[in-house]
Design a protein around this nucleic acid. Structure first.
Lengths: 234, 234
DNA sequence: CCAAAAGTGTTTTTCCTACACCCATGT
DNA sequence: ACATGGGTGTAGGAAAAACACTTTTGG
């Protein structure tokens, strides 16, 4: 099928495009804590210097995911090629944007700390990383979007290998456990956790070790696959 | 926050609405087989008498789910109040509609046979129930939407009590098992299935029995809760 | 030698799986 | 009495859960 133009001549009623937006919930983990990328929204009179998720309009020639990547680049100041993306949910409440009717396709983005450049780790302009538990009172309906994303992330982590997208290429089993705990919000039994994970064959040892202080160095592991697989994990 | 008009006077650039549509994958189970509601699409020159999912535009004053319900009423000829709805995915491929750029928020709808009136069980106009496995070569990108819905349904049925939305208020354990099998596509061990389900307390016996032929009548059960709960089921 | 995190094993209990025969009914 | 689907139990193995001490290192 040939690509048609927006207002196709064969169309009886020409179709107009659309106030369609995308909002991104971009997560990373620093030091065992889950962070989300926020930006300061300044849209008086509605939002004055208030935190919100990076978001923006989808253009008529973009699919939603392309738009999401563009916005991660332009507003999140993160190279979106390094980000794993999954569609979250489409938010269509009438008054979610006080400027008028805007429907937003939400995305979850995941990036690991080791993929971030020094500049990307810091903020840039009004964009910065915030620990998830302090990300409250966001602009628009972004509290709801963030809550939906957290719930989805916690659910997906049980039956997929999504967690690998939040971890550096090499990581210790303790780091893996802390990553789960930061998402699930509860503590896991170290011994049982290791037994389970190792039996699943989703990680493999590198043989290397990492000394991290005045104590026994930890063995480094990698994900067996770089892809996200659907497997019962926890 | 007050409801704002579409083109809010406080908006610097007035916002226009949108070619936003919704497509519905409405499932039911008749006699142990999964059916999907289809309609005949006639949009020459692109689609001539071709099956497709019920769908239509979202209006500027509707949230997506309201639009989905309206379309179930108007194009599916099913009273949407009786339908359980869940957002599926938003499909935004540029050429998914040959008439022009149309982004569709997909919904999964579930309804049980006993909630359908005789008229709703039959087709009406060009709308009808089709066994899922014969629903192929659909218009637009509806093959993809249906495949996405089936995958989601199979996944959700494992860790929610969604299956209850496809079953009549009272059902036998055999019917419940067949419902799972029609969605998952594999057979389950009857004894182990019953043990598992009964232990979960998601169904309760009514004490009643249903004679269905020249053999032992089956005990009738109900879902413990009418709501969809998130529990590890299978 | 001390502090700190890494690493490891056993027991108990629960759950999963495989599998075959009797039960209740209508004709 | 027979055909048909409904209904049940057990044994073996696998997985989960609970639980505490030893190891390795840097300072």
């Amino acid at each position: 099928m040939k690509k048609s133009s927006i207002n196709s001549p064969e169309s009886p009623t020409p179709l107009r495009f659309a106030i369609l937006a995308t909002d991104i919930v971009l997560f990373t983990i620093f030091d065992g804590t889950l962070y989300v990328r926020l930006m300061t929204v300044n849209r008086p009179p509605h939002f004055v210097h208030q935190p919100g998720l990076p978001g923006g309009l989808i253009r008529p020639d973009e699919i939603a995911e392309e738009a999401a990547r563009r916005i991660i680049d332009e507003k999140g100041y993160i190279n979106s090629k390094k980000v794993y993306l999954e569609q979250l949910f489409t938010f269509s409440n009438i008054s979610r944007d006080p400027r008028g009717r805007v429907v937003a396709v939400g995305y979850i983005g995941l990036i690991s700390e080791d993929k971030l450049t020094t500049k990307e780790k810091d903020g840039k302009g009004l964009t910065y990383w915030s620990p998830v538990h302090t990300a409250k009172h966001l602009a628009y309906d972004h509290d709801e979007i963030l809550a939906t994303a957290l719930k989805r992330l916690a659910s997906r982590v049980h039956y997929t290998t999504l967690i690998g997208q939040l971890l550096p290429r090499e990581f210790t089993l303790t780091e893996l456990e802390k990553a789960f705990e930061s998402i699930l919000g509860n503590n896991l039994d170290r011994r049982n956790f290791r037994k389970k994970i190792l039996k699943l064959d989703i990680v493999k040892s590198t043989g290397k070790k990492r000394a991290n202080g005045a104590f026994r160095p930890a063995e480094l592991y990698r994900m067996t696959s770089k892809k996200v697989e659907e497997i019962e994990v926890l």
